[in-house]
Nucleic acid binder design. Structure first.
Length: 149
DNA sequence: CGCGGAATAA
DNA sequence: TTATTCCGCG
């Protein structure tokens, strides 16, 4: 996969977070963030997977990037993110209005929530997401994953 | 902008 | 079920 960024925690493949914070190395991303569309069990690419994908690549730091608290990110260029998402999903008429509606559906699912007052800023509920994706993961021994929420 | 209902698609 | 599309409201 992505050698160099990989860590092994209780059998679960994790990738170190690519963030500018000094304490960033203490945290990690579960590998579902990098799960290819073709992998067994996964259907079409999900929006939050795509968001994580962009967040993980430094070439998009002017488009979308981590900023603020752990799990918090800012969409610096809404039109560009929408354009990229539209290309990925073959939806040429995608725009931020529609993309943001999809993000809002994540609120009830507890995958994301809005950082109120901060424009284009959302925050991942990593602890919830990880529990959902890795129900058997021993959270007591994976406190590094529980910082969000 | 940000929100969430409603209809519809895949 | 996860979006996509459209939209009225604050």
């Amino acid at each position: 996969m992505r050698s160099g960024l990989l860590r092994e925690v209780r059998g679960t493949c994790l990738c170190s977070i690519l963030a500018p914070w000094p304490w960033a190395s203490r945290f990690a991303f579960p590998d579902w963030a990098y799960k290819p569309e073709s992998s067994p069990g996964s259907r079409q690419i999900q929006l939050w997977h795509f968001i994580l994908e962009l967040l993980q690549k430094e070439e998009y730091h002017d488009v979308i990037a981590w900023q603020g608290d752990y799990g918090e990110f800012v969409i610096k260029d809404p039109d560009e993110v929408a354009r990229l998402w539209g290309i990925r999903k073959c939806k040429p008429h995608m725009n931020y209005d529609k993309l943001s509606r999809a993000l809002r559906y994540y609120y009830n699912k507890r995958i994301l929530h809005k950082t109120k007052g901060k424009r284009f800023t959302y925050k991942f509920n990593f602890s919830k997401v990880v529990l959902v994706n890795y129900p058997l993961l021993d959270m007591a021994n994976s406190s590094l994953l529980l910082v969000g929420e």
